[in-house]
Nucleic acid binder design. Structure first.
Lengths: 199, 199
DNA sequence: CCCTCATGTCATCAGCCGATGTCATCAATA
DNA sequence: TATTGATGACATCGGCTGATGACATGAGGG
C-alpha cells in the first residue's frame, strides 16, 4: 500500500521537484516580478499550469522555494570571514538569490515579500545585529541593516551588469573589496572574549 | 505669428510639462517598470494617450525625464561631503531618482536602460573615479563602481521600506552612517595629491 | 461668422500575465 | 481485462500594460 515505485513514468513528485528547482534558479537570478510562470515551466520542462496545481500559485511556489533553502544556509554574521566567503561563493555561482533580490527590489505580492523579509532578518540581519551588539557597537540593528544594504547593493550591482568593472570581478576580488567596506571581525578579537563562538 | 498666449485654455506645452513632472516623480519613486503610463496620466491630470502623442511613448518620456534633470545635478564626487549631503537631501525628499533605480533594478527597455546608465556614469561614477585616481588609489574605476553600488544599496534599502531601522533614519543620521562606509575626502586631505601614502 | 486644425477624450487593440477548467491518457488495482 | 484515480496537455479566461486611431471640441484666423 502506497508503494512509491521510483520508476513511474508519470511522477508528480518529480514534476514538483523540477518546478521547484527551476523556480529557485530563476527567482535567484531575476527576482520575483521578472520571472513568469511560463518561464519556470519552460525551464523545468513542465507545463506551467502544474504550478497552480502543485503549489497553489506563483507566490506560493516562491514561498516553497524560500522554505526549501532554509537549511542550506548558515546563520553566521556577515562580518565573519568564512560566512562572507561562502555567501559570495554561492552568489557568484547561482545569482543573488530570491531573498537579497526582495530586499532591494520588493515585489508587489505581499505574502511573498513578507516571507522573504522575514527570512532575510532571520538569516542575515539578526545574527549580524547580535554580533555587532557583542562588539559593543551602538544601534546594532540599524548598523546591521546598513551593512546588509551595503552588501546587497554590491551584489546586485555586480549581477545587474550595469557596472561593468564590478561585474568583471572574481569572487576573490569581490571579497577583498567588500572587506574594505564591511568591518570584519579580527582574528584577534578586540572585543572581550567572554563569549566563545560554538562552531 | 506663433503667438504664445499664456492664457490658452488648451495648452499642449502645459500638458507636456505636467506629464514630464508627474513622470519624473513616479520614476524617481518606483523606477521605470513599476510605473505605468496610466499612473503618470492620473497624477498629471492628463490623458495618458498624450504621452504617446507628445513624447512618442513611455520609454521616450523616461529619456526626456533624464534629460530634463541634466543640469540640476552637480558633478562632484560622492566623497565630497557637500555633494553627499546634497544628494541625500534630494533623495530623502524626492526618492532615489530614476538613475539610481536603474542601476540596481534594470528595466527591460534597453534604450531607457542604456540612457540611464550613461547618465549614472557621467554624473556619479566618472567624477568619483577621477577623485579616487587623484588620491592615488588603485583601480579607481572599480572602486568608484563599488562605492556607487554601496551608496545606491543603502538608498534603495532605505526607500524600499524593507529595512525598518534604516527606513526610519533622518537625513543627518543617514549621512553619518554613510560616512562610516564611504571614505570621505578629509578637509585637510591626509593624502597629498603627489605623495601617495602607504597604509 | 464660419472654417480649420490643434488639442483632448474615448474606445479599443494586441500582447503578456497568472490562473482555471476541461479533457485525454496512462498506471495501478480488482 | 475493465475500472478508476492520478497526471499532464491544452484552450481559454479576465486583468493589466503600452499603444493607436477615430472622434469631439473649441480657439484663432480668414
Amino acid at each position: 500500500m502506497t508503494k512509491a515505485k521510483p520508476s513511474r513514468r508519470r511522477d508528480s513528485a518529480a514534476s514538483r521537484e523540477l518546478l521547484l528547482r527551476a523556480a529557485s534558479e530563476l527567482f535567484a537570478d531575476r527576482g520575483y516580478d521578472r520571472t513568469t510562470a511560463r518561464d519556470i515551466g519552460e525551464r523545468a520542462g513542465v507545463d506551467p499550469a502544474l504550478i497552480a496545481r502543485y503549489f497553489g500559485g506563483k507566490s506560493q511556489l516562491y514561498i516553497a522555494v524560500l522554505r526549501s533553502q532554509e537549511d542550506s544556509d548558515t546563520f553566521t554574521p556577515l562580518t565573519d570571514d568564512e560566512r562572507l566567503s561562502g555567501l559570495l561563493e554561492r552568489v557568484v555561482q547561482r545569482g543573488p538569490g530570491p531573498i537579497f533580490q526582495a530586499a532591494l527590489r520588493p515585489s508587489a505580492d505581499s505574502a511573498a515579500q513578507t516571507m522573504a523579509m522575514a527570512e532575510l532578518n532571520r538569516r542575515v540581519i539578526a545574527p549580524l545585529s547580535a554580533r555587532l551588539a557583542e562588539r559593543g557597537e551602538e544601534r546594532p540593528e540599524l548598523r546591521a541593516e546598513l551593512l546588509t544594504a551595503v552588501f546587497i547593493g554590491v551584489i546586485l550591482g555586480r549581477h545587474a551588469g550595469t557596472l561593468p568593472h564590478l561585474a568583471g570581478t572574481t569572487k576573490e576580488e569581490l571579497l577583498s573589496l567588500l572587506r574594505t567596506v564591511i568591518p570584519m571581525d579580527g582574528p584577534d578579537d578586540p572585543a572581550e572574549p567572554h563569549a566563545p563562538e560554538p562552531e
